[in-house]
Simulated assay, not measured.
Amino acid sequence: MSEAELGPVRGTYPTDNRRRGWIATILLLVGVPVTALAVVFWVAVEDMSGKTPQTGGDPLLLPSAVVGLGVGLLLMGVWTGIWYLTHRGEVFELRDNGVRYSRSGRAQSITWADIDRVSIRPGKDTALARWVGGDVNCTIHLAGGGKVTITGLTEGAGELVEHVETATARP
């Protein structure tokens, strides 16, 4: 379907990709030292546990949890960084007969009939969740395969999701 067939623009919803980049940077900058220090902590506890009698608990439980935290921060930072690089210029245009989605020099016109289903996962309404875009998470599943995700990093994401959900509601 062409842009003209989608109808006039009813709203434009840009995504704050710059914030996504900051989030990735912060996660990576925190994840690297946490992981490094956690590995040192784990090795030290492992070394000490061999020299002292066992007390019944696993001495590596806490160090392993801290290593997992550090690795988790790194993985989330890499994942968010990839989104930052691949979703530059992300904009949703709400139109009468569908949505036009564009990013990184690519554009896609999606009619309401092209949408198979809309999955909305409830986010948390906290300051941190709002800042990282975790307050809104909607995936638009397309009938021919593929999907488009709207997060709280998109300006007016809640309003956009409501419009999409209402327009695609099946009786």
Rank of each mutant, 00 (worst) to 15 (best):
D114C: 07
A38F: 04
G56W: 11
A38C: 07
T25P: 01
L94K: 11
A44S: 14
L74A: 02
A65G: 08
V118L: 06
T111L: 07
A65M: 15
A113Y: 06
C138Y: 06
L74C: 04
G81V: 06
T80M: 04
G81T: 08
G105F: 05
L94H: 12
V34D: 06
L28K: 07
G56E: 03
T126I: 10
S104P: 02
V32Q: 08
N97P: 04
I23K: 01
G77I: 00
T126Y: 11
S49M: 08
A65Q: 09
Y13F: 15
L85H: 12
A113P: 02
A129Y: 02
T86N: 13
R121L: 06
I120T: 15
G50W: 14
L61P: 00
D96E: 14
L27P: 01
L37W: 14
G146S: 03
T25C: 08
G144P: 10
D114N: 08
T151H: 11
D135W: 03
L27F: 13
D114R: 08
V66L: 11
E93F: 04
W79K: 08
Y13A: 02
S102G: 11
T35F: 00
T52M: 14
K51H: 14
A65T: 10
S102A: 12
G31Q: 00
G57Q: 12
G123T: 03
V40H: 13
V78T: 05
P122H: 12
R103I: 05
G105V: 10
L69N: 06
A129N: 14
D135V: 02
A36V: 15
R18L: 14
R106V: 12
L29T: 13
L61S: 08
G123D: 05
G123K: 03
L74S: 01
I115E: 00
L94E: 06
A113F: 08
S109T: 11
L61F: 15
V91M: 09
V40D: 15
M76L: 13
S109R: 11
Y101H: 14
I140M: 09
F92P: 00
R88A: 09
G134S: 07
L61A: 10
T149R: 13
R19S: 05
D125M: 11
G134D: 09
P63S: 02
D58L: 06
T15K: 12
